[in-house]
Simulated scan of single mutants.
Amino acid sequence: MEKADVIPSIVLSAHALARFAAQDAGNEAPSAQWRALSILEQKGGMRIGELAIAARTTQPGMTRLIGTLEQAGLGTRTTDPADTRATLVHATDAGLIHLAEWRAELRDTLAPRFAGLADEEWIVLQRAAEILAAHAQETTTTGEA
């Protein structure tokens, strides 16, 4: 495998693992919900358009998702103090708790798939997770994350 081929392999494997975990756990919440809450957890309040770009979705789609999050008590909208014509979206405390519970559910559901790994393999995965997390946080030249 070429060096550059490792990156899409990791991304595709991560998507597959997330699907397996959601199916195995019976979690029916859309992945867009977790993605939006994760972004809000990391970046704090954001305008809907900025959140849509960060989540790689449309603004109308994000507006609908935020409505769903609000109805569930997981997200809220406030007026942007820098521009009262604009709205900021925030994850609520309940939304952040729900996100942490989902992450624990992912961990617990996927743990059996990795039970046979040797300590050395865990060290490799831990380092890979650190590298991936660092690169997932970097900002591109256009200012998008």
Rank of each mutant, 00 (worst) to 15 (best):
S9E: 06
I10L: 15
I10Y: 11
V11Y: 11
V11K: 12
S13Q: 11
A16N: 11
L17W: 13
L17F: 14
A18Y: 10
A18M: 14
R19V: 15
R19C: 08
R19L: 13
Q23F: 11
D24K: 14
G26K: 05
A32Y: 00
Q33D: 00
R35N: 03
L37N: 04
L37P: 02
S38W: 00
K43R: 11
G45I: 01
G45M: 04
G45H: 08
R47Q: 09
R47W: 01
G49Q: 03
L51F: 00
A55H: 07
A55C: 07
A55Q: 07
T57M: 15
T57V: 10
T58W: 12
L65Q: 04
E70K: 14
A72K: 14
G75A: 08
R77T: 10
T78N: 11
P81D: 07
A82E: 14
L88M: 05
L88H: 02
A94Q: 12
G95M: 04
L96P: 00
L99W: 05
L99N: 02
W102G: 00
R103H: 06
A104M: 09
E105S: 08
L106S: 01
L106Q: 10
D108L: 09
D108E: 14
D108A: 06
P112Y: 11
R113I: 04
F114V: 05
A115F: 02
A115Q: 07
A115G: 03
L117Y: 10
L117F: 11
A118P: 03
A118Q: 13
A118S: 12
D119L: 15
E121L: 12
E121V: 06
I123F: 07
L125A: 10
R127N: 13
R127G: 04
A129Q: 15
A129S: 15
E130F: 11
I131T: 12
L132A: 15
L132I: 14
A134C: 06
T139V: 08
T139D: 01
T140M: 12
T140D: 15
T140L: 14
T141H: 05
G143E: 03
